[in-house]
């Protein structure tokens, strides 16, 4: 019983090896799958960790929303158009939503936001005061 068992074991191992070789040969011949069947392509020794590329501030895409927010904010404050101030706030929101580098963009954005808020404050509180004087 043990002898028999041993022999079959050997046979089975051989069998497995032979079929695997055949499969390899077949795959390399036809190459119907684009996977590399020869051996494991992985090489853990050559693995490199990810290094995030350093981007200079000039290379960043232009933040059009932030720019528009500043423009509208300034116009809203100087000409007292409340629509402009509202647009400035909306573009602020857009710029905030698209922000990738918090430290870099936040200065410009906060300036635009201040302009927008200032425009709104002067618009609403200012005009009500004026109207009161007139009355």
């Amino acid at each position: 019983m043990p002898r028999f068992h041993g022999s079959t074991n050997l046979g089975a191992a051989f069998c497995v090896r032979s079929t695997r070789g055949a499969a390899e040969a077949k795959e390399t011949e036809t190459g119907d799958a684009m996977k590399e069947a020869t051996s494991d392509p992985r090489q853990p020794s050559t693995a490199k960790h990810y290094v995030s590329p350093t981007l200079s501030p000039q290379d960043l895409p232009i933040d059009y929303a932030g720019f528009l927010a500043v423009v509208f904010g300034v116009v809203g404050v100087t000409l007292r158009y409340k629509l402009c101030s509202w647009l400035a706030i909306i573009f602020c929101a857009q710029s905030l939503a698209n922000m990738k580098n918090f430290e870099n963009d936040f200065k410009q954005l906060s300036m635009a936001f201040m302009f927008g808020i200032m425009g709104l404050v002067t618009n609403y509180l200012g005009t009500s005061r004026q109207a009161n004087k007139q009355r």
Binding site: P41, R42, Q43, P44, S45, T46, A47, K48, H49, Y50, A97, N98, M99, K100
Partner: peptide
Amino acid sequence: EGQDVFKFYASGRR
């Protein structure tokens, strides 16, 4: 990166 850019990195291959 941001809300619309996703990165997947892989290394260690021949």
